[in-house]
């Protein structure tokens, strides 16, 4: 399964976990209000979900842009965006857990006056219900880890090769990226243990070398465009080759590593 597909699956799973978490929270709050049981309303989940939801939605709606621009940051850094999304997922997961534990599982919990006593679940049922927040947490982690797989899709959506100006900007960004990748790989290789060196030589270094050559080819196409004024027909392919190689680089990390 390609990383792109895995990323999409994880994104859908993560989003489902989030929806489940938020829905259970709303239901829980309604139940608490109906039962006038407000003694333990404030929990870490509430704070996490309130803060992260506010930041996520404000970010998506572009409300943070004036503040970020005023701080000379430009746009919302992707790392922060992902971080808050993960926090939101964790909050949703926590709510789900809390909801089921409180309503069905906690032995000895005093039922509200209007609610008939709930018999404690048998161990098998308890495990099944506990699986929901556990799975939600796993999905959240998977979403965070493979969120990177969505980055090539995001990059593809950028107008990287539509105009020569954008192609030049893309070329500069790719050049800086490869230089940084190469520097990191050299540094890590020279300082690494023999196991790490072997792993880098086998899995990572060949891909980085290929990426470097692909970016040189892309830059050569930009030069042709600059010199002739004609957009080379293979610009999109060359750009997409680089992104595919990035996916290969990410996939290489799934092949284990030296300790």
């Amino acid at each position: 399964m390609g990383l792109d597909v895995l990323g999409k699956v994880a994104t859908v799973a993560g989003a489902s976990a989030l929806v489940a978490g938020v829905l259970s929270t709303i239901i829980e709050m309604i139940v608490q209000v109906i039962n006038k049981n407000t003694s333990d309303k404030i929990k870490p989940w509430y704070i996490a979900i309130a803060v992260s939801a506010a930041v996520c939605f404000a970010s998506k709606a572009g409300l943070l842009n004036p503040i970020l621009q005023a701080m000379a940051i430009g746009t919302m850094p992707s790392q922060l965006d992902m971080g808050f999304t993960a926090l939101l997922l964790s909050g949703g997961s926590g709510f789900t857990h809390d909801f089921f534990v409180k309503l069905k599982l906690r032995p000895g919990a005093e039922p509200a006056a209007q609610v008939p006593p709930v018999e404690p679940l048998k161990p098998a049922g308890r495990i099944r219900i506990l699986m929901i927040p556990i799975l939600a947490g796993v999905f959240a982690a998977l979403y965070l880890l493979t969120g990177c797989a969505t980055i090539p899709s995001l990059a593809k959506s950028l107008p990287g090769t539509i105009t020569i100006e954008n192609a030049q900007r893309t070329e500069q960004a790719l050049g800086d990226w490869v230089t940084s990748l190469n520097g990191w790989a050299w540094d890590t290789y020279t300082k690494g243990s023999p196991e790490k060196q072997l792993w880098l030589k086998t899995n990572v270094n060949p891909v980085i070398n290929k990426i470097k050559r692909a970016v040189v080819t892309y830059s050569s196409a930009v030069i042709v465009w600059e010199d002739t004024g004609q957009r080379p027909q293979n610009m999109d392919t060359l750009y997409s080759d680089v992104l595919t190689l990035y996916s290969d680089l990410m996939a290489a990390t799934g092949k284990g590593g030296g300790s």
Binding site: T75, P77, C148, I151, A155, L158, G160, A173, D176, W184
Partner: peptide
């Protein structure tokens, strides 16, 4: 790897 590609995308978007 993730940080470096995010920096790349950030540069392109900004």
């Amino acid at each position: 790897f993730i940080g470096s590609i995010m920096t790349l995308v950030g540069k392109l978007k900004s």
